[in-house]
Design a binder for these strands. Structure first.
Lengths: 366, 366
DNA sequence: TTGAAAGCGCTAACAG
DNA sequence: CTGTTAGCGCTTTCAA
């Protein structure tokens, strides 16, 4: 607009076409308070800049009018959004659900809102959703894992280059990759797999198996599998690999139990991609009077609530599900406030040894 | 960001301060394609309105520039947003997690995004979050339950009056309230409680108990309790009420079991606010060699995956968790497209009878 | 401490 | 079929 505008807004005001959705605007509040828009805007953001008396008048006007700020407008004008875009594989899976809840708690009352999408473990879909969500100019992006389509990765790097914090949750790079522009909050799944193998081996098992997730896109479960196998091999222990059938994991674990028992040469211990599978196997073992851990030791992953209540208690690896969400939230909040990139958070997985891998343990607890 | 103006930009233009965050705009694409903004805008929304040849040029320009639409701007201009605001008590609770996942699936590729907040079962917080989320001018609002602060209710009614679809999930009004402006997608918790009582009574129990949720804000659990008690009373059956301790529900169920066994006069059956509590009790009974259902029948609620795998299988009420989400999504999508209010969806809860309330049943399955 | 002017990037309405 | 004009409601910059 190069034409110098005339002094005041057309006083005649003529035919206000009023396209908006009729909610009171800053202007409306301003009129009531006898000030201008900008004063109301200031009041909303930094009340201390106003004369106390003005502030009070504005406060009353805001209230009497029932003003709700139009965030779209504000963010368009300021170029800043207050949206944290979050992409996870499945909001219904307990581990991710807890992470989402952790994120929601971490973001609560921060003035930021979470835009959530579920990728269903499908990289193509993730890419599409990422593209869609970028249209919101999110203030930060939280994605799951380290693996995605090349295009999606590029989108994230572009966003990062444009100053948007990007946090990858649930995984953690094995090597120290200090040149990475994205921050990771998670744990090393390969190392977790190694830990699982090492535990079984340390209990004296020489023939073991790993039961992989039936969700073929679950990259992290496969990383654990690889860690498990690698460690077993390193220690000269034979490790068979089975894959759980798709569908209900408890069912799958039950089915797998018999495959494990049928393996030749016989194995004496099995690790599972998650506690649901392991629980299914444990319950099935109970039903068939298979002695656990004597005939077959069982080791889960995830430390789901039920695991310590089983008989024997299910040995497992405790993962910081909710903590990942909370730390991710704290990380993006910090990052949005100061431009320097926060540190990665390498969280701990801890082995929980219960009766299912250790005979003679009180079946109830540790 | 002092992006140098390109050729066609107002040549004088002097010190364009360029406040935006530097992403390519419609204008940029238009320049490349040799058309004006509006043509690009049209292409993006209704390509069929353009001459095929123009469309193709614009398409290429969009691609070459890597254009990502600024949704804030578009929605400010059009007055329509594409956000579905969703408020749930706790995204980490399996039942709500499944509902969220159902919603995410239902909204997927619809062009709408889910803004999710977790209220922690706290009405005050819900009200605050509702207020915050209204600033986004959501295209639709999904809230949990029928009970909230008066102010929150008013906000919803105002939004509704302004044309925003509002769906209440997880509950369903008992009486036909055809005058309501909001749509419900859920089930009648009181009736579910009645069904639970009726089942126990029909199995011959004359002294029963209901174990209420330890989450005092869980209104729906209390509704089931009331339904349970009412039905028992109606049938002349004594019903004791216990409340689970807060904290881990599996633990709580275990603790409660002994309280149930200690009740005088003795009871012969107990219903629980959810399957976690019931499972805790069942496992504890196993550990103590208490015969289920002979000494004490146990009835859960929710039909969590573990329940049918227990020994004996846990009788329970199956609830349509994911379906609530999917139907809620379908409902808001439909509603946003046509202004007429869709019908309420009264979903079914179904009683699942397994071994924990019925002696002699195969413990594995129904 | 308050205000005026300008514009964020897009779409609606109306021309042509 | 394409363009012009005028905002959407807010924040920024600069001035008073």
């Amino acid at each position: 607009m190069l034409v110098p505008s005339t002094a005041a807004r057309p006083p005649i005001a003529a035919k206000k076409t009023r396209r908006g959705h009729g909610r009171p605007t800053l202007h409306d509040v301003a009129e009531v308070a006898g000030v201008t828009q900008i004063t109301v805007s200031r009041f909303l953001r930094s009340p201390e800049l106003l004369a106390p008396e003005t502030a009070e008048r504005v406060r009353q006007a805001v209230e009497s009018v029932g003003y709700v700020p139009n965030l779209q407008a504000g963010q368009l004008a300021s170029g800043r959004s207050r949206i944290v875009a979050t992409l996870i594989p499945n909001a219904g899976h307990s581990v991710f659900a807890e992470t989402v809840q952790g994120l929601a708690e971490g973001l609560r009352d921060s003035g930021y809102e979470m835009l959530l999408t579920s990728t269903g473990y499908q990289p193509q879909r993730e890419e599409r959703q990422l593209r869609a969500v970028l249209g919101w100019s999110p203030a930060a992006i939280v994605v799951t894992g380290l693996h995605r389509t090349a295009a999606a990765q590029q989108l994230l790097l572009d966003a990062r280059a444009a100053g948007t914090p990007v946090v990858e949750i649930w995984d953690h790079p094995t090597r120290k990759t200090q040149h990475r522009e994205l921050v990771q909050v998670g744990f090393d799944h390969r190392a977790a797999g190694q830990m699982m193998a090492e535990h079984l081996i340390s209990m004296g098992h020489q023939r073991v198996a790993y039961v992989d997730s039936g969700v073929i896109e679950d990259v992290r479960a496969h990383l654990r599998r690889d860690g498990f196998i690698g460690q077993a091999r390193k220690r000269g222990v034979q490790a068979a690999v089975l894959t759980a059938p798709p569908g209900d994991a408890l069912d799958g674990g039950g089915v797998i139990l018999n495959e494990l028992l049928d393996l030749r040469p016989r194995i004496t211990a099995a690790a599972f991609a998650n506690d649901h599978l392991a629980t299914g196997a444990l319950l099935q073992a109970q039903a068939q009077n298979i002695a656990v851990p004597e005939r077959l030791a069982l080791l889960g992953f995830g430390d789901f609530p039920i695991s310590r209540h089983l008989h024997p208690g299910l040995s497992t690896v405790h993962t910081p599900t909710a903590e990942i969400g909370r730390i991710a939230a704290a990380t993006v909040l910090k990052w949005m406030r100061s431009p320097e990139q926060p540190a990665n958070a390498a969280l701990d997985c801890t082995l929980i040894v219960r009766g299912s891998t250790k005979a003679g343990l009180d079946p109830h607890t540790a």
